[in-house]
Structure formats: structure tokens, C-alpha cells
Design a protein around this nucleic acid. Sequence first.
DNA 1: TCGACGATTGCC
DNA 2: GCAATCGTCGAG
Length: 172
Amino acid sequence: MRLTNDFFGRDVLEVAPELIGKVLVRKFENGNTIRFTINETEAYRGEEDLACHASKGRTPRTEVMYRQGGLIYVYFIYGMYWMLNFTTGPGNHPQAVLIRGTKEINGPGRIGRALGLDKTFYGEDLSTSLRLWVEENSTSATSEHTIIAKPRIGINYAGNFWAKKPWRFLAP
DNA sequence: TCGACGATTGCC
DNA sequence: GCAATCGTCGAG
């Protein structure tokens, strides 16, 4: 069953760990469909979070994070990778969760490549998209109790206070 | 317009 | 250890 705004409309610190074990579904134009089980996420929360892109304020790139939860936030980095994020929260407070790893493919850059992401995915609604969404996992037994939290990766520029926050969630 | 830099990856 | 590679954003 597809996850919609009820799920993503909550605070990112609730949504990010609960995404572990959920299923990422990508349907391509040729009809092929692939499913990845999410096993690593990171939370980015608010303008005060110096690791969050929204710490620079509202720009064309960060604008979608200020909207309601349940939208796709993609951005291009290092000249070659599309990073997949979902907006969270009720709106007017910029938040997003980065999909950092799946059971099948590890690394956010490699996931973006496998999903064939590009700028046209920016702002797409997960509750209505015909090509990318998230589903409950009917078979997984991953429970919140088995999820561990660690500091986020690659954000040392944000300073110790934010870099040390345990906002990276993964299944052991 | 110009230049610095990045929520990464893979090869040296 | 470091190059690849380009969109984004603030400064000029």
C-alpha cells in the first residue's frame, strides 16, 4: 500500500526512521518496475540545521522543502549525481529525508542513477506519481527497535553541533 | 557574469 | 589520496 501525506506530513525525525524497511518503487516508461527496500535514511530539519540546504533560506532549489510533506526533492551534486529526498512535515517548516541506502543498492548517488532520476522529478507528489512512490513492506519484520541512529555523513562543514546529531538511521 | 563548492563515487 | 564534473548561489 502506497504511503501518502498522512505518513510524510509528520516531523522528519519521526518519518526518517520509519522509512527503514519501506519499499521504494520506480516504474519506468517501458513498463519495467523495480523495488528497493530502504535501509538507510538521513533527516534534514529546518533553517537552523546548518547541514540542511534550507539553512541558506528559501531559494529555487530549496523551495520544495517549505511545502507539505510527501513531495520529491531531488538535487544534482558533484556534477554527476541526483540525490533522492522526500519532503516531510505539515509545511512552512523546511524538512526532508535523504534516501541514503537500500538493501539492493548502497549510496545515494548510485540509487539516484539506478532510478534514472533527473530534474523533472523535482516537486513530484508521492501520493499521485505514476513513476516513483513508497509502499509499506508486507513481508519485512524490521521494527523500530532494530533501527540505530548515527551522525550524518559528509556534512562536517555544518560544524560539530549539527554534524554530531544522530539523524542518520539505518538497519543494523 | 564569475568563482567557489558540494548530503558522492571510484580509481590511483 | 584525489579527480571528475556542473548546477547553484552569493559576490562583484
